[in-house]
């Protein structure tokens, strides 16, 4: 489908479904190395976002929709994911401006700005066992795909694949940020829940763009 406001809305609604389906899985990952509330918080946040999307004006741009997601997540998530994802969607909204439809370059700009927002807010670096470990490979894969002349759908699929691989790659890491950093080597062998939810959100973006 064209990457317009209808796509952003479809992406967000798919995100809400996928987060809801994975609520218990995310809680379990977070209980292993954090405080166990990531699935609960994300589910509450996206349910609120889906409700709010109904109030979006008919002439809203993709940027307007992303901004609505940002402010709703910041107000409703209640854990670190609220400010982190909220800042990500807010920076993504700023990056796409008032464009009515997003091309490959705009998608790369959206993903890059989202990743930069998470880094700005959480001050985590690659390898700290955080959501950055899903986002940075996703941004790099999207850039490579875009430079190779891939379609928007292919760019998003490349980003989603890289984010999933990045989430898996957090398993052997020791956490240097967040609640898991208190655990030291005991965090080894557990996947970071934030990296996992990031991969889910990017897969939802790719799937809805592909019309799946």
């Amino acid at each position: 489908m064209a990457l317009d406001t209808a796509w952003v809305t479809a992406w967000i609604n798919r995100s809400t479904e996928v987060i809801s389906e994975n609520r218990v899985a995310l809680i379990t990952l977070d209980r292993d190395i954090g405080d166990g509330d990531h699935g609960e918080n994300m589910d509450r946040g996206f349910q609120a976002v889906s409700t709010k999307l109904d109030t979006l004006s008919p002439d809203a741009t993709p940027g307007d929709a992303l901004k609505l997601v940002a402010t709703t997540l910041i107000s409703t998530v209640g854990g670190a994911a609220g400010p982190l994802y909220g800042t990500a969607y807010l920076k993504a909204a700023a990056a796409v401006g008032s464009a009515p439809e997003l091309d490959g370059a705009a998608i790369v700009a959206l993903l890059t700005a989202a990743r930069d927002g998470i880094v700005l807010r959480g001050k985590a670096e690659s390898g700290d066992k955080t959501m950055v470990d899903a986002w940075t490979p996703a941004v790099e894969a999207a850039e490579i795909a875009q430079q190779a002349g891939s379609s928007e759908v292919e760019i998003l699929a490349a980003a989603a694949d890289a984010a999933e691989a990045g989430a898996v790659a957090t398993e052997p890491l020791v956490a240097r940020k967040g609640r898991a950093s208190y655990l030291g080597e005991r965090a080894i062998g557990h996947r970071d829940p934030g990296a996992q939810s990031s991969a889910l959100l990017l897969r939802a973006a790719a799937d809805t763009a592909a019309g799946e």
């Binding site: 910041i74 854990g79 670190a80 609220g82 400010p83 982190l84 909220g86 800042t87 807010r121 959480g122 940020k177 967040g178 609640r179």
Partner: peptide
């Protein structure tokens, strides 16, 4: 206090 409190406060500042 812990982590997300600082992130929320920083976001509120923005």
């Amino acid at each position: 206090d812990l982590g997300s409190a600082i992130l929320t406060a920083d976001t509120a500042l923005d």
